[in-house]
């Protein structure tokens, strides 16, 4: 609801080349199953929401 305050706290990706090193740590995984698992765990740990960018990259957003 508080628009535009989201912060990307982590990135989980199948394809490392699609993400440049930025503010958030990048986790490269080797399959969709692992990606789902890692993203779920990170989401819980960081109290953040997992979003699928649709190109194999998941970002974890904290509001």
């Amino acid at each position: 609801m508080r628009g535009g305050e989201g912060l990307v706290v982590a990135v989980v990706t199948l394809a490392g080349e699609k993400v440049l090193a930025g503010g958030a740590p990048v986790f490269v995984v080797s399959g969709s199953e692992e990606r789902e698992k890692v993203a779920t765990t990170l989401g819980r740990v960081l109290d953040s929401q997992v979003h699928d960018l649709g190109n194999g990259v998941y970002v974890l957003v904290k509001r």
Partner: peptide, 8 residues
């Protein structure tokens, strides 16, 4: 909204 995880 967008929901990334299949389980969610």
């Amino acid at each position: 909204q967008e929901v990334g995880l299949a389980k969610s």
